[in-house]
Design a protein around this nucleic acid. Structure first.
Lengths: 229, 229
DNA sequence: GCAAAAGTGTTGTACTTACACCCATGG
DNA sequence: CCATGGGTGTAAGTACAACACTTTTGC
């Protein structure tokens, strides 16, 4: 390493994850009681320190995996937080990421181990440090991303029903949406393939399953069109 | 500092600045020849290492001031870049910020000292490391911010003319805009105050100067309205 | 008096919103 | 047979895009 690099200060870097879960038409945030001093036992995001041999994104995936045992999840960086005294335990720069996971896949034995709990997005308590700000920033970014890119589909397994998709949309934006207008937007863009009717768990009639078609989306983008929800 | 903190790895943190200038209806990016190894003399953003007693934002302002002698400039964080081998000189996490400055205020003696040059935004060469990606991300973010928040006004001194504002808008979005529609949007939102007619430098007739009225904007937001350009 | 940029309204089109009924099924 | 959620079209209103001429003044 060049001498010019060596002479500079080094910093602890933390990664904090805004892990959002979707269940029963509602959005939840995974929180824990902070396991270490300072502010031990206060509400906190899931976080951890970055290590030498990992990228920022890998560090975020590591944290997510540690607390949920989930991998291959869509994650997005929210930003870096670097105020001087943001962490009362010492000088730490933190990088926030958000992820949206299916709560049904969540390993509840881990929840006990880490004292992790799903809190309704409207009932988030006061969190340590600047974690509340991170959550606000993450939700704002999520709303932007969902509006302009087909990321909402990453939050389901390969298939989903339109009522479920709309429920998720409404949970993210915290506002009701007209059923016909919502479906019109999706059918106009023509990015989904309908499967054989199936989900009978949530209704007697059953709702068709759909899948997001990546090839259709590629063609859609190639035509200069932009995703919009 | 708690033992739990102490045992973790520490990292060099760099701040890289995407310094955008506006002059003669065009957008320029301030670039330099990298002064240190590795990749000495290659094109690079203005950057530097973060120090102990400054916040991330302060570090960005420090870099901006070092290369332009400008302070009190609107800056916004683009994001953190943390790939393992992004910097071939060693493990460095970099946080990118963008700023938009008036090129007329730029101290050209500094340009010589640092071999800094204004490059037209469409002629940006291949830059070191992931700096091209940072520039792309910064422009995308800038466009979003300009569309949804009244940040474009930060890029002028206290006053500006509507033709100049439109020129800046067109430079940022790299597309022409209808004069009447552009002005209609602004007059509909009613956030500007017109001053006595003045700028005669760019036309014989002269264009009215305007100022952005922060009180009007506060009232505008209080009514639940959203800025849109 | 003419070149060069500033300023000003209207009309058609596309998109967004609001809205109500029938359908399929499990119990 | 009825309660529950799934699925469908149209009309009004709003926002956006396209468009041409007059005004001012320095030279």
């Amino acid at each position: 390493m060049p001498a010019y690099y060596k002479d500079n200060s080094r910093f602890l870097i933390a990664v904090d994850c805004i892990i959002l879960g979707f269940q029963a038409k509602e959005l939840f945030l995974l929180l824990t009681r902070r396991p270490v001093e300072p502010l031990k036992n206060e509400w906190s995001l899931m976080g951890g320190f970055m290590e030498e041999q990992e990228s920022l994104h890998q560090a975020a995936e590591k944290i997510l995996y540690r607390y949920t045992a989930l991998g291959n999840i869509y994650m997005e960086q929210v930003g870096a937080y670097g105020e001087l005294h943001r962490d009362s335990g010492g000088r730490v720069i933190s990088v926030a990421y958000y992820a949206l996971v299916q709560m049904e896949l969540f390993d509840t034995s881990l929840a006990k181990q880490f004292d992790a709990r799903w809190i309704h997005i409207n009932d988030v308590p006061s969190l340590v440090f600047d974690h509340n700000q991170m959550v606000r920033d993450a939700l704002k970014l999520l709303r932007y991303k969902v509006s302009t890119e087909p990321v909402i589909f990453n939050f389901f397994g390969n298939r989903f029903t339109l009522p479920a998709l709309q429920d998720l949309y409404e949970a993210i934006f915290q506002m009701p949406m007209d059923k016909r207008n919502f479906r019109k937007k999706l059918t106009t863009m023509d990015l989904l393939d309908r499967l054989e009717k199936k989900d009978k768990d949530n209704s007697k009639r059953g709702a068709y399953y759909y899948v997001f078609n990546r090839n259709k989306y590629a063609a859609f983008v190639a035509k200069g069109k932009r995703f919009s929800l």
